[in-house]
């Protein structure tokens, strides 16, 4: 399978990428690692007229300690995130989740900015960025603007980015580093999540916890009702029962709506238990085949 014909332009710098976007307007589509976009193009579900390849712009590949926040360049690959010493120390949930995406080959190409800008609700990292209350930085002809993660995903594969803007950075507060849990249900190891849940301790959240859900709506979402219940003093088990309250999951070959709602409650409870466990909580074991419905559930978390 090959994509429909298109024009290709490789941007050597961010400035050049912006000028290509300004020149080609709506016809242009940004190409980072290409592991979401190229499969869609091969199936002719996406037929951009111009591909602007930003994959080699080195100025967007970094993880920096900026005091209160960790700043991640949009073109940092999942592989590099998973191995990054600063993230492993300050925001281990990001390194861990990045290291679970797809398979090693995918992680060598896929980028955090690509994952966010593509906006697939089944992607893992957008839910983590949401749970951490992150901020996304976009650059366009009118300059730089910051978009709260909660306002970034507007609808199915739609984001707040303007056609002439590039997502350049993801900023994450460090308070999410203390305790975390990530639970992902897949049929096979490399698959997209049927449902996944992430919970992170956050000093700046009313209930002290941020909770994100993967594949429970047309966009990545926060489990706001769970967070609010915890703020009101509910137990983890009580709060987890509200895991699907803010969701609108679809049915597909892998799961019915009812099954997704049930799984979300179970995974949120497990993720919360891990995130809120004391230092002895440690890493969880990965469950292989044999879990519910013959599917595998990977589970991990920690605290410090």
């Amino acid at each position: 399978m090959i994509p429909a014909p298109f024009e290709y332009a490789r941007a050597a710098s961010l400035e050049e990428a912006l000028s290509f976007l300004a020149e080609h307007g709506d016809e242009a589509k940004l190409l980072a690692g290409g592991h979401s976009l190229l499969p869609l193009m091969k199936l002719r579900l996406a037929t951009p007229g111009v591909l602007v390849d930003i994959g080699r712009i080195e100025e967007l590949q970094y993880v920096r300690d900026e005091g209160e926040a960790v700043a991640i360049g949009a073109l940092t690959t999942h592989h590099d995130l998973s191995r990054n010493p600063l993230l492993r120390r300050q925001l281990p949930v990001v390194a861990h989740v990045a290291g679970q995406i797809g398979d090693p080959q995918v992680r060598h190409r896929g980028t955090i900015g690509g994952s966010l800008a593509h906006g697939d609700a089944a992607s893992d990292l957008p839910a983590v960025v949401l749970a951490l209350g992150g901020t996304l930085v976009a650059l366009g002809p009118k300059g730089r603007r910051e978009i709260p993660a909660s306002e970034f995903h507007n609808g199915f594969l739609e984001t707040a980015l303007e056609p002439d803007e590039v997502l350049v950075e993801v900023r994450l507060g460090k308070s999410g580093g203390t305790g975390w849990g990530f639970e992902k249900l897949t049929k096979r190891a490399q698959d997209w999540a049927i449902v996944a849940a992430v919970a992170v301790q956050r000093e700046d959240a009313p209930g002290g916890v941020g909770v994100g859900l993967v594949n429970m709506a047309s966009v990545p979402i926060r489990a706001a009702s769970v967070e609010a219940a915890l703020a009101d003093g509910a137990s983890v088990a009580e709060a987890a029962e509200l895991a699907d309250a803010d969701s609108d999951p679809g049915a597909d070959i892998n799961a019915s709506v009812e099954y997704r709602r049930h799984v979300a409650k179970v995974l949120v409870r497990r993720a919360l238990e891990r995130a809120l466990a004391g230092p002895a909580g440690g890493d969880g074991a990965a469950g292989a085949a044999g879990a519910a419905g013959g599917a595998g559930a990977a589970s991990e978390g920690g605290s410090s």
């Binding site: 390849d53 080959q105 190409r109």
Partner: peptide, 21 residues
């Protein structure tokens, strides 16, 4: 993964990359 090659030393699936990349 049948099409896996090394790109600058790292494994990639060459069916999901453009030659141009």
């Amino acid at each position: 993964g049948a099409c896996t090659v090394l790109l600058d030393g790292q494994s990639v699936k060459s069916c999901t990359m453009l030659a141009a990349q």
